[in-house]
Amino acid sequence: MKNKSDPRVIKTKRQLKTALISLLAKQSVESLNIQCITKAAKVTRGTFYLHYTDKHDFVKKVVHDFVKDFFRSSLVDAKPFLEQKVQISEHQVQVFSLEAGFKYIATEYQTFMVLFGLTGENRFNDEIKSEFF
């Protein structure tokens, strides 16, 4: 398997994620198959299986990566917001920034619409709840 920081791997995973979100805006997870995902992403089935074991592994990892990216983008260094009197150890202190969070949501609105079931026939949010709650 290629390195996760390899630009080709990043591009392929981005294409697959984009294809998944686009397809989920129109149909349910159950109706999707690897062939329609790879066709929409313009990658081969072999390429898909280099990164994921099956459709459920793929969907789970896309959701996990999305949540991780959301929080990574929304957490900011707290030091500039603290009073100078407050001493901070050498550890970095992060806080959730609503501004950064909303910017991420604005950038990824299509993904949020799909994940929360606000588009089409999709009930993908039920799948997320069953996976994480």
Rank of each mutant, 00 (worst) to 15 (best):
Q35P: 00
T53C: 00
Y49F: 15
T53H: 09
E131N: 04
Y109W: 08
Y104D: 04
K42H: 10
D57P: 03
K4Y: 10
L23H: 05
K60A: 05
E30M: 07
V59T: 03
H91C: 05
V95P: 04
D69W: 02
L32C: 13
S130L: 05
V62M: 12
V93N: 10
T12Y: 04
E83Q: 09
I105H: 02
F58D: 01
S73I: 05
V86D: 03
V62L: 08
E99D: 15
F58V: 06
F70A: 04
V93H: 14
I88C: 14
V93K: 15
V67E: 14
K61N: 11
P80Q: 11
R45C: 09
I10F: 03
L50S: 14
E108L: 04
I105N: 06
C36E: 12
K42Y: 08
F81R: 13
D69C: 04
Y52I: 02
Q15A: 11
A100N: 10
K85Q: 15
Y104L: 11
T38N: 01
D77W: 08
D57G: 04
F112Y: 06
E121Y: 03
F133V: 15
E127V: 10
Q87K: 15
S73T: 13
F96Y: 12
V59G: 02
T12G: 02
L82P: 12
K68P: 01
Q110R: 10
V9F: 07
S74F: 00
P7E: 14
E121P: 10
N122V: 07
I34V: 15
L32D: 06
G46E: 05
K55S: 04
G46M: 03
Y109T: 09
F133W: 14
I128F: 11
A106N: 13
F132T: 11
E121A: 07
A41I: 03
I88S: 13
L118E: 15
L20E: 00
F133A: 15
M1G: 15
V114P: 03
L23K: 07
R14T: 12
F132C: 07
V29H: 02
C36F: 04
Q110E: 15
H56A: 01
K2P: 10
V43M: 00
L24M: 11
